[in-house]
C-alpha cells in the first residue's frame, strides 16, 4: 500500500510525523506552560528571573527531584510506591545514628544509608513479586511499618550533632554577578543533575531500561519474550530505595540535622511532579526530562506565587488545580479521534 515517496516529500512527511508525535507528548505542553508561567512571573515579580533565584529554586527542589527519579522508574515498570518518604527518613536516621553515635567515617556512613534504602526497596519488591501483593497495598503497609518503627525507636528525637563532613556546604562553582549577587552551584544541585543523568542513561540507553519500559507496557508479553520480570521488579524498587536514601542524606545535608518526620507528606508532591511530567500510573510511559519539567513547574509556581506575595497556603490549591487540569487534558486529548474505520478501508467493489 504505502509507496516509496520521493526524497523531499518524504522528508516533509517525516518532519510532519515527528511534529505530530511531539505535539502529543506531555513534555512539549509542559515546556510551553513553564515558558508561559515563567515569563508571566518574570514580568510581574522582578526577582524571579534572576540567576540566584533560579539556582536557589533548584537547590530547594533537589531532594524531591532526586527521589522523583526513583519513583519515575517504578512508575514506568507499571507499579507505584508510597513508601519512599518513609524509606528516605529511615535511611537518613540510620546513617545519622552511625555518624553521630558511632562516629563512623563518611564513606561507611553514606554506604550504610544507601544500603538501608536499597534494602527497604527490595523488601517492597519481594512483597510485590513473590507474595503477589498489589504494589500500592504493599508499599502502604511498608510505609506504616518502617515509619512507625522509626518513630518508635527514635522516640521522635532529632539528631542535631551531625559531623561536619555531612553538614558543611560543598560549593562546586561560585561566581559573583555584576549585580553583586553571589551564585553558588552546591552539592545538592550537582547530585540532582548526576541522578537525572544516571536515570536517563539507565532508562534510555541500557538493555535493562528498555526492558523496564517493555514490562510496564505489557507485562504478559514481556514474560513471553523472555524478560525476567522478577529481576526488573527488584531493580525498579531497589533503585527507588537508593534514590530515596540519597534524597534523605541530601535533605539532612541541607538542613544540618536529622528529624525523623521531616520528609513525611512529601509523597504526594513527588508523585504529582512525576505524573505532571507525563509518567502514567498505568506504566510504560514517561521520560526523565518530563519528570524534571514537572518538578520545575511546581517549583516555579510556588516560588513565583511567593515572590508575588501570595500566601504560601494558597500554593496547595494551585497544585490541586494543576494536577486536575493537566491530567484531564492529557486523557481527554488522547481519547479524541479513535473511531474504528471500516468504510474507508474495506474494498469498495467486487
Amino acid at each position: 500500500m504505502p509507496e516509496p515517496a520521493s526524497g523531499p516529500d518524504r522528508a516533509v512527511g517525516a518532519a510532519l510525523a515527528r511534529w505530530r508525535r511531539l505535539r502529543r507528548r506531555p513534555e512539549t505542553w509542559l515546556f510551553l506552560v513553564i515558558l508561559a508561567v515563567g515569563t508571566l512571573f518574570g514580568l510581574m515579580a522582578p526577582g524571579f528571573l534572576t540567576l540566584p533565584n533560579v539556582i536557589d529554586l533548584l537547590e530547594t527542589y533537589s531532594v524531591q527531584a532526586i527521589i522523583a527519579m526513583g519513583l519515575f522508574v517504578v512508575l514506568v515498570s507499571g507499579g507505584i510506591d508510597i513508601s519512599f518518604a518513609a524509606t528516605a527518613s529511615v535511611a537518613q536516621y540510620c546513617a545519622a545514628l552511625l555518624a553521630s553515635r558511632l562516629g563512623l567515617p563518611a564513606p561507611l556512613v553514606i554506604l550504610a544509608g544507601l544500603a538501608v534504602g536499597v534494602g527497604l526497596g527490595c523488601v517492597n519488591a519481594a512483597l510485590i513479586h513473590h507474595l503477589r501483593i498489589t504494589s500500592i497495598i504493599a508499599t502502604i503497609a511498608m510505609m506504616s511499618v518502617s515509619f512507625s518503627l522509626l518513630m518508635y525507636f527514635s522516640g521522635g528525637r532529632s539528631i542535631y550533632d551531625l559531623p561536619d563532613w555531612w553538614t558543611s556546604r560543598v560549593v562546586f562553582y561560585r561566581a559573583e554577578l555584576a549585580s553583586g549577587d553571589i551564585v553558588r552551584v552546591t552539592l545538592p544541585v550537582v547530585l540532582m543533575g548526576a541522578m537525572a543523568l544516571l536515570t536517563w542513561a539507565l532508562m534510555t540507553r541500557t538493555s535493562i531500561g528498555r526492558q523496564i519500559y517493555a514490562m510496564g507496557g505489557n507485562p504478559e508479553a514481556a514474560r513471553r519474550v523472555g524478560i525476567d520480570v522478577g529481576r526488573l521488579t527488584y531493580v525498579a524498587y531497589g533503585y527507588l530505595g537508593f534514590a530515596a536514601a540519597l534524597g534523605g542524606l541530601v535533605q539532612a545535608h541541607r538542613v544540618g540535622e536529622s528529624v525523623p518526620n521531616a520528609m513525611v507528606n512529601t509523597e504526594l508532591a513527588v508523585l504529582s511532579a512525576a505524573v505532571l511530567g507525563g509518567a502514567s500510573l498505568a506504566g510504560g510511559v514517561g521520560t526523565v526530562p518530563g519528570v524534571l519539567l514537572g518538578i520545575v513547574l511546581l517549583a516555579i509556581l510556588q516560588n513565583g506565587l511567593n515572590l508575588l506575595g501570595v500566601s504560601p497556603y494558597f500554593f496547595q490549591i494551585v497544585i490541586g488545580v494543576t494536577i486536575l487540569v493537566s491530567t484531564s487534558i492529557t486523557v481527554l486529548s488522547s481519547r479524541r479521534g479513535r473511531r474504528l474505520r471500516t468504510l474507508g478501508e474495506a474494498p469498495s467493489h467486487g
Partner: peptide, 17 residues
Amino acid sequence: SLFPNLTVVENVAVEST
C-alpha cells in the same frame, strides 16, 4: 503480545535488549 508503548523498532528487535 506487543508493547504498545514502544516503537515498531523496539518491538521488532526486542530480542536485542
